[in-house]
């Protein structure tokens, strides 16, 4: 019997079995408030991207759930079930060294993706799971290939914004840890140009932050 685990913004998650293995069925449900042509296009393209990038990320050393089965027509993916805690929760129950070490590992993951020209597109502290002392990255529905510095900068800028909004007390430390991890993998000069570009992205927003 399937159990609904989560009704997210974009997809619903069910816990299920796949040939005896614990699995997750992720289905992007039809949204009747959206124009039907657009709705179908979005659900199918994201299912396709997610399946592709879950696999591509693993190839460059970023742990992701295994994909068992994809049905693009139904906008459905069956993947490995990952038990564990989200990075968000590990930050909320703040134990400085422990929490920041995982943030640093998240930074390494992002750098590995970017070095392979993969942009995650939806980096949040909810999309990293700590399981069996390993970091797992999920939710690749908005991922795409790009070698542009701009896209990499926006990728981290978005995470930065989430951290500032959701974990405002520790925001500075968290962001610092992420960037440290990033620099470890990407190198000093890549990280430096990324930071410069992030400033430009931020200034382009509606009202700039006076910081």
């Amino acid at each position: 019997m399937e159990k609904q685990l989560k009704k997210g913004a974009e997809a619903s998650l069910y816990q299920t079995k796949w040939f005896g293995e614990e699995a997750i069925r992720k289905i992007r449900i039809l949204k009747t408030f959206r124009q039907s042509v657009l709705d179908l296009k979005l659900r199918q393209s994201r299912t396709r991207r997610e399946a592709l990038f879950l696999k591509e990320a693993r190839r460059v050393g970023v742990n992701t759930p295994l994909v068992y089965f994809v049905d693009v027509n139904k906008a459905e993916i069956i993947m490995q079930f990952i038990p564990g805690r989200r990075l968000k929760e590990i930050i909320d129950v703040y134990e400085e060294n422990f929490s920041l070490e995982w943030c640093k590992e998240a930074g390494r993951y992002i750098a590995r993706l970017h070095s392979a020209e993969i942009i995650h597109g939806d980096l949040t502290t909810s999309n990293f799971i700590i399981s069996d002392n390993r970091l797992i990255l999920i939710d690749f529905g908005l991922s795409f290939y790009s070698q542009r510095l701009e896209d990499k900068a926006i990728d981290i800028h978005l995470l930065n914004m989430v951290v500032k909004s959701a974990h405002n007390i520790y925001a500075e430390k968290i962001i610092h840890a992420v960037l440290m991890g990033y620099q470890e993998i990407a190198g000093e000069s890549s990280s430096h140009s990324l930071l410069e570009r992030m400033k430009i992205v931020e200034l382009r927003g509606r009202y700039k932050r006076d910081e």
Binding site: R34, L42, T124
Partner: peptide, 18 residues
């Protein structure tokens, strides 16, 4: 209207879930 507002609706939905 359909595209721009669907983008807003999706952002709202993500924030609401968060």
């Amino acid at each position: 209207q359909e595209t721009g507002f669907a983008m807003l609706a999706e952002s709202v939905e993500r924030a609401l879930a968060f």
